[in-house]
Nucleic acid binder design. Structure first.
Length: 271
DNA sequence: CGAGAGTCCTGAAGGC
DNA sequence: TGCCTTCAGGACTCTC
């Protein structure tokens, strides 16, 4: 499942291939994603030249001058760079064909992802309006987390996964960051002290930055983004390790459900 | 507004 | 071997 590090790695892989390139053709094979791909999508993109590719949370925003392509990988999506003549396979829903005979191919078996056209220069789309700060920016720190969580009775784990609080913290990294910070995922967000909010904010930054670094070095100039990289799983301290010994204290890692999501934690190390 | 549940979807895994 | 059921998950959307 693509998390923020995979999305950032995808962005870094795409950028040198598409920046400054003209879009010759767009092929849509299935419009039924998270939201339907708009009817005018192909027409709006054809002939556009891609400038920068930005990331906001897990959204990628392709600057095309007169508008932006907004893409999201959902939980099973990938964007790959291929030679234009490469045959499409099942679940290859969109091709963006460039003037250098490369194609950016969007593949998404579960179709939880998105591909939209945002007309104009203003990124004032409702999907982007209410998003919280970027976790790796200076806008996100312990003071922010502390202030934002006062009075909130949701669990700290669900709280940091809420995109209106902070973007890009997915299920894996939420469990890992809480383990690193030594915080029980079931605690009410509003009861976490300022000192522990500082620790948690730093842990979130560190887990995400580590994963981006690992992804970037293992991928180089090739975009592989369907979340099957395994570079993070191999380093996971608690995620997916139900009943296995905690790497720190040896007691069994536990698995629980929070908000219809699985959470992994060590009840000895996390209080 | 906050909290919790529902929703989209396919493929993998488990039960019989 | 094969069919059926369950589950996984991002994040928007609905209900209370």
């Amino acid at each position: 499942m693509p998390e923020l590090p995979e999305v950032e790695t995808t962005r870094l892989g795409l950028l040198p291939k598409v920046k400054g390139r003209r879009i010759d053709e767009v092929i849509v094979r299935n419009r039924r994603l998270r939201w339907p791909i708009p009817r005018n999508f192909e027409k709006m993109l054809a002939g556009q030249t891609v400038g920068d590719v930005h990331r906001r949370g897990k959204y990628l925003l392709w600057d095309c001058g007169t508008g932006f392509v907004l893409s999201h990988l959902g939980m099973s999506g990938s964007l790959r760079i291929l030679q234009a003549e490469t045959a499409a396979l099942v679940h290859d829903h969109v091709d963006i064909v460039f003037d250098n005979s490369l194609v950016v191919r969007y593949h998404d078996p579960r179709r939880f992802g998105a591909m939209l056209w945002l007309a104009g220069r203003e990124l004032d789309h409702p999907l982007l309006d209410k998003l919280g700060p970027e976790p790796l920016s200076s806008d996100f720190d312990g003071n922010y987390l502390h202030a934002a969580s006062r009075g909130r009775r949701t669990s700290i784990k669900e709280f940091i996964m809420n995109g209106h609080v902070v973007v890009g913290v997915g299920n894996i990294y939420a469990s890992e960051a809480l383990f690193m910070a030594g915080i029980d995922p079931r605690r009410y967000a509003g009861t976490i002290s300022r000192a522990r909010c500082n620790k948690l904010a730093e842990s979130i930054k560190q887990t995400l930055a580590n994963a981006i670094r690992a992804g970037g070095s293992s991928l180089r100039d090739y975009v592989q983004a369907d979340g099957e990289l395994g570079y993070f799983q191999s380093e996971a301290q608690v995620y997916g390790r139900d009943e296995m010994p905690c790497n720190v204290c040896g007691s069994h890692v536990r698995s629980i459900r929070q908000g219809q999501r699985s959470t992994y934690f060590c009840a000895t190390c996390q209080k």
